[in-house]
Simulated assay, not measured.
Amino acid sequence: MEEGMTYEKAYKELEQITTEIENESITVDVLADKVRRASELVEFCREKLRSAELEINKITSQSDSQISAK
């Protein structure tokens, strides 16, 4: 994935690809490339969500530990 890619940018590009495929506005010649790119974007978004979930769980766990220690 290119540097500087964010979840929001990836999601927007994924929406655009989905719309193009649904509207049949792309040719068969580029369909495989679009599907490949969509697959990369989905994996990128999943990883970002997993990472955010882990970070949130870590923060809430630390918070819970601090509250229990008081």
Rank of each mutant, 00 (worst) to 15 (best):
Met5Gly: 02
Asp64Tyr: 12
Glu40Ser: 05
Gln62Thr: 11
Glu53Leu: 10
Ser39Pro: 07
Ser25His: 08
Asp64Lys: 12
Ile67Asp: 06
Phe44His: 03
Gly4Ile: 00
Glu8Ala: 08
Met1Gly: 07
Leu54Lys: 09
Arg50Trp: 06
Glu24Cys: 01
Thr60Val: 14
Gln62Leu: 13
Tyr11Phe: 13
Leu14Glu: 09
Ser61Glu: 14
Ile21Phe: 03
Ala32Arg: 07
Val35Arg: 08
Ser61Pro: 01
Glu55Pro: 08
Ala38Ile: 13
Phe44Met: 06
Glu2Met: 02
Gly4Val: 00
Ser63Trp: 04
Leu49Glu: 08
Asn57Ile: 03
Tyr7Phe: 12
Leu49Lys: 10
Glu40Cys: 06
Ser61Thr: 12
Asp29Phe: 07
Ser61His: 06
Met5Tyr: 00
Ala10Lys: 01
Gly4Asn: 00
Val30Ser: 07
Glu3Asp: 09
Ser51His: 05
Ile59Glu: 11
Met1Pro: 07
Ile17Met: 02
Glu20Gln: 08
Thr6Tyr: 01
Ile26Arg: 05
Arg37Lys: 13
Lys48Phe: 02
Lys34Ile: 04
Asp29Gln: 03
Lys70Val: 08
Ile17Val: 15
Glu53Ala: 04
Ala69Lys: 10
Gln16Asp: 15
Leu31Arg: 15
Asp33Met: 11
Ala69Pro: 02
Arg36Lys: 15
Lys12Met: 13
Lys12Val: 11
Arg50Met: 09
Glu47Met: 03
Val42Thr: 11
Met5Lys: 01
Ile21Gln: 05
Ser61Trp: 01
Met1Glu: 04
Cys45Gln: 06
Lys48Thr: 12
Leu31Phe: 10
Ser65Trp: 02
Ile59Ala: 15
Lys48Asp: 05
Thr18Trp: 03
Phe44Lys: 00
Lys70Leu: 11
Glu3Val: 05
Val28Trp: 14
Ala10Tyr: 01
Ala52Pro: 04
Ile56Val: 09
Met1Tyr: 02
Arg37Asn: 14
Gln62His: 13
Ser68Tyr: 03
Glu55Thr: 11
Asp64Gly: 10
Lys48Tyr: 02
Glu24Pro: 01
Ala10Thr: 07
Lys58Arg: 12
Ser63Phe: 10
Glu22Gly: 10
Tyr11Cys: 15
Leu31Ser: 08
Asn23Ile: 12
Glu20Lys: 05
Thr19Tyr: 01
Ser68Ile: 09
Arg37Ile: 15
Leu41Ser: 07
Asn23Ala: 08
Arg50Val: 15
Ala69Leu: 14
Glu43Gln: 13
Val42Asn: 08
Glu47Asp: 03
Glu24Val: 07
Ile56Ala: 15
Leu31Gln: 13
Leu54Pro: 02
Ser63Lys: 04
